[in-house]
């Protein structure tokens, strides 16, 4: 299950999209998400689809790889779609017991599913083509104006990158402690929910203890290497816009305008709802 989540993974490839400045990709993703939720008609989704297909092609990430990321949300998708299908008030087509399938329900479920799927595909495309490092750098740079209202932007991004570095280490550690307790005949599987939660104590206590120790060590190591917050720091890899980045911004602008104009003035609807 955990392996299927492609959101947050990085796919190594040599493509224009990979080389784009992370800020462009972040802004692009936000613009794309905005268009998804702006209108509720078919036109906008056709345009978004065209945009997706185009960028996926450019990114050289295999479609199968991206689709795999959807597996993780299939259940969520089905449940919310079902709720929408049967619980949306409107003109009933068929009804049984307390539930009724309505035209409005079908439309709501359809749009919801499309939005969710497009949202996931779009944002995983961003994370697949951007290393976590670039991502945090990009976020830090984009959020810089927030510094003025006392948001600790540098600290937040530093925390994010440290978290990303330590996630694999802590996963490995969890596995090790779990095995060590299983070697002492601990049972993590059977029993009711209370028993299962209780069984986690021998796993969680050592994990917390070791995380605190690691945090302490790391803080000391960072101080020893002259870390004193964001002030006066230079960057080894400063973000700098290239020509392609400006082109990408231009392309995004065109996409936004087209989406707004067409979505507003030429709406297509399913089932005429």
């Amino acid at each position: 299950m955990l392996k299927d989540i492609t959101l947050g993974q990085y796919y190594q490839a040599d493509s224009v999209v990979h080389k784009l400045d992370p800020r462009v990709k972040l802004v692009g993703t936000i613009a794309y998400i905005v268009t998804l939720f702006m209108f509720r008609n078919l036109t906008i989704y056709l345009i978004a689809l065209a945009f997706l297909v185009f960028t996926i092609r450019l990114s050289k990430v295999p479609v199968s790889f991206i689709v795999r990321g959807l597996k993780a949300i299939v259940i969520l998708l089905i449940i919310t779609a079902l709720f929408n299908l049967f619980l949306t008030p409107g003109e009933p087509i068929v009804s049984f017991w307390r539930f009724s399938l309505t035209y409005e329900g079908i439309a709501a479920a359809f749009y919801l599913a499309i939005r969710l799927i497009f949202l996931i595909i779009g944002s995983s495309l961003m994370t697949l083509t951007t290393t976590p490092n670039q991502l945090t750098d990009g976020l830090e740079s984009l959020m810089k104006p927030l510094n003025k209202i006392k948001v600790p932007v540098h600290e937040i991004s530093m925390m994010m990158s440290i978290a990303l570095r330590f996630i694999p280490i802590l996963m490995e550690e969890t596995d090790k402690i779990m095995k060590a307790q299983m070697a002492r005949c601990a049972d993590f599987e059977s029993g009711n929910i209370i028993k299962k939660v209780k069984a986690l104590i021998p796993l969680l206590v050592p994990l917390f203890v070791s995380s605190f120790r690691r945090a302490n060590d790391l803080a000391m190591a960072m101080e020893a290497r002259c870390y004193q917050g964001g002030e006066g720091r230079t960057k080894m890899k400063p973000l700098k816009y290239q020509k392609t980045d400006y082109l990408a911004y231009l392309f995004l602008l065109v996409y936004l305008i087209v989406a707004i104009v067409l979505g507003k003035f030429f709406p297509l609807h399913i089932l005429q709802v």
Partner: peptide
Amino acid sequence: KKLRSQVGLVFQYPEHQLFEVDVFSDVCF
């Protein structure tokens, strides 16, 4: 489960698995 009690395995840095409030309870686990 019985096998694991008969073939005891002490992992590397085993002190990292201690979790109880006192030494005696931990050994009782």
